[in-house]
């Protein structure tokens, strides 16, 4: 079996005349965490629903573990776990009863059900609340119960739609940790989010959505190289005379920008902090701060769309 678990080609979805998803293509490999990132309404959820066979595909193809969700929806749904945006459960039933119902729908043999439900709830830290009514659950607990359902299902692909939205920082971190755990178990995880910064840390690769199209795709450093000019931004705070010239002379530095008196922003080809420090000290300056900026998805995203004002896709979607 190949290493590609999801393969989308020219996937397009139109609602009447509006195009929600416009010819996107991507591959997701086994055991990879892939992020579909972009603002609300960029077509992320529609893409997910098409992969699950829950909405019709206007054109293009998608293969999930070699199956076509249009023709073989049951095969696909058997191997894919889905955590919808703001997942809901039957409030008047307990966590266990909710999972038991889903286990029935999945077709888990009756003899295995109890054990699999218990271990899934254990894994997401809900064993104490197993017999409580879901109506009293917090948002974070519901998300975890949704994850437990996916664990119980024993899937090869997990699709999580906005798993962290509305969660407090601690709950977010717990959830991201569980997502990493899924990856270690060999599950391919596809997650969507509009909070770029939050999920940046877990994603192996990301696709940045914009107006139904994938604007950028790749690992975060790759995108940074592509969009932010392939460089590292090094911030230098130092007092001294003629520092700008000295810093510009450091090998690998392409540009020096004095953002404020005593504040310099270097664009360099690599991490030039040691050399910059040496340059400042060599010039008799006093070095007060030296930092390198990690490429952030937010920066990449905003920079990318600043540089392409009003793309064609945006016009259509408006």
């Amino acid at each position: 079996m190949s290493d590609t678990v999801i393969e989308a080609r020219d996937l397009t979805k139109r609602y009447g005349r509006a195009t929600a998803v416009d010819g996107i293509s991507f591959d997701i490999a086994r055991g990879e965490i892939f992020g579909l990132l972009g603002p609300n309404g960029a077509g992320k959820t529609t893409t997910i629903l098409m992969m699950l066979g829950l909405t019709e595909i206007t054109s293009g193809t998608v293969r999930v573990l070699g199956h076509d969700p249009v023709r073989e929806p049951l095969q696909v749904k058997r191997m894919v776990g889905y955590l919808p945006d703001t997942v809901g459960f039957y409030d008047h039933m307990t966590a266990v009863d909710n999972l038991r119902y889903t286990a029935g729908l999945i077709g888990i043999p009756v003899a295995d059900r109890a054990a699999r439900i218990t271990s899934a709830l254990d894994r997401v830290g809900l064993s104490d609340a197993a017999r409580k009514h879901v109506g009293n659950f917090s948002r974070g607990m519901r998300q975890r119960l949704g994850l437990a359902e996916i664990l119980m299902k024993d899937v090869s692909v997990a699709i999580l739609d906005e798993p962290t939205s509305g969660l407090d920082p601690q709950a977010t971190n717990e959830l991201l940790e569980m997502i990493r755990w899924l990856k270690r178990e060999g599950v391919a995880v596809l997650l969507s989010s509009h909070l770029l910064e939050r999920v940046q840390s877990v994603c192996d690769r990301v696709a940045l959505f914009h107006s139904g199209k994938i604007a950028l795709i790749g690992t975060v450093p790759e995108l940074a190289k592509q969009v932010l000019g392939g460089g590292y931004h090094v911030e230098v705070e130092a007092d001294g005379t003629g520092l700008a010239e000295k810093l510009a002379a450091v090998p690998g530095v392409r540009n020096v920008e004095a953002t404020a008196p005593g504040h310099f922003r270097l664009l360099a080809e690599g991490d030039v902090r040691p050399q910059a420090a040496a340059a400042v000290v060599g010039a008799g300056g006093q070095l007060r701060r030296l930092s390198v900026e990690n490429p952030s998805l937010d920066a990449i995203y905003s920079r990318y769309f600043e540089s392409q004002p009003r793309s064609e896709g945006e016009m259509h979607a408006a």
């Binding site: 699950l52 829950l54 929806p73 749904k77 703001t86 999945i106």
Partner: peptide
């Protein structure tokens, strides 16, 4: 409205 529909329909049933 309870947001259970998409979760239920993502299980292997029609």
């Amino acid at each position: 409205n309870r947001r259970t529909l998409s979760r239920i329909l993502s299980q292997p049933i029609y």
